[in-house]
Design a protein around this nucleic acid. Structure first.
Lengths: 218, 218
DNA sequence: ATATATTTTTAGATTAATCTAAAAATATAT
DNA sequence: ATATATTTTTAGATTAATCTAAAAATATAT
């Protein structure tokens, strides 16, 4: 049996290891899990003993295939529940994370396959992140950060990097949602802020915001 | 903060104390929780310290008002989730218990109030048990056990005492569901079995079955 | 290349929940 | 009313997850 805590560590290692091929460091896990490095060392040994992680002292950690499967299944559950909360229970996209963090640990294959069908097999969650299918396949789309666009790019918003409530509320306030179309009209060299046009209305966006919004250039 | 284990003990004490006014015994809790009496003693002290239970050594335990509120809220969540599983995710009534046991611990007021609305404020769960409203009020209907009926009673099935999979599957097999109308036509003194008529078809029912099916006499 | 800083691990303690075995209290039988 | 049986509690140990403080290993700076 896998404990709740083990699941959370596996998930953290998965998210930290997603980019780059490097091993995940003890400290980065400790930060992500809001715990101490010594606790991470203990747990990482345990995950290694159980076959979920590859670990060599002082060398950091990666997930085994089995560990990766578990992580992807948790991500799948998390994102399906987020869709449920937004589509069926009228949650807004900045309210779903905490609840999904709890729901993602419910153990029942039938529950998830039925939920998936009930939601009509969604491919992306409310933040634009892809939902792994039941075999673990993740359908990545070629999105880039708004900060990486060039002047004149015609874009459509497809996701957010950060899904904190503050950021999402900022987007709501400025009428930016997934699917919103925009054109990049100016970049200010001094602070890297970007001017975008949405339906011919101009909006100035800080570099920090642009670094957290994914778009697809058409 | 209240832990998962504490919630489960509170729920067990609530269910055991529901009938009769007696204090709930250490042993009965141990049986219900599938644990040892010594573990129960420890936990019951803790619940008492936290103000959820009244406990005097060797005298058994009752819930405080606060404990009762917590218990009723768990029951509410459990039953709402059961309705969700059956109505929306096509679970059958014998499959919902284990999953609802997990879902009942999810903490989010908004989740439950929205779920309640999404299900259109159901009053009973798939086993006929009443769903407490958000203030904790439980709408009891005057049901009796089929074993308590007398010959000639015209009844409608309104609930089950036992919601084990085996029992529910027996009912399915014999086309007995909540809402099914039946007439009590004979009682066999030797084994207390009962003959009932459903749509003029006769069916002989053991005393054990009759002891687990609630009906309303019309 | 070595000193210094940073990261990681180890050792030993703590808390929550559990257990076994024995002791204490209560209930039951005659 | 007392012996016996049953129930409950206590004492002390165990496991999972965590912590602090110190030691060990690795990385960085000059």
């Amino acid at each position: 049996m896998i404990t709740l805590t083990e699941e959370n560590y596996i998930k953290a290692i998965y998210h930290l290891g997603k980019y780059g091929v490097d091993n995940v460091s003890t400290n980065s896990i400790a930060k992500e899990m809001e715990t101490k490095a010594s606790s991470v060392t203990d747990m990482v040994k345990k995950l290694s003993d159980k076959g979920y992680a590859n670990y060599k002292k002082y060398q950091g950690v990666t997930l085994t295939e089995e560990g990766k499967e578990i992580a992807i299944n948790i991500v799948r559950k998390h994102r399906l529940w987020e869709v449920f909360l937004v589509e069926k229970l009228n949650f807004s996209w900045d309210e779903v994370h905490e609840v999904a963090e709890q729901l993602e640990h419910i153990k029942s294959k039938k529950l998830i396959s039925q939920l998936d069908a009930f939601l009509e097999f969604p491919t992306h969650d409310p933040h634009g992140d892809p939902i792994p299918d039941k075999t673990g396949k993740i359908n990545k789309i070629d999105k880039i950060l708004l900060s990486e666009t060039i002047i004149g790019d015609q874009c459509i918003c497809v996701g957010v990097q950060d899904s904190s409530s503050d950021f999402l509320k900022y987007l709501d306030k400025n009428k930016i949602a997934l699917g919103t179309e925009l054109v990049v009209s100016h970049r200010e060299p001094f602070d890297n802020s970007i001017t975008i046009k949405i339906k011919n209305k101009e909006l100035i966006i800080s570099n920090m915001i642009a670094n957290n919004l994914f778009v697809k250039v058409s």
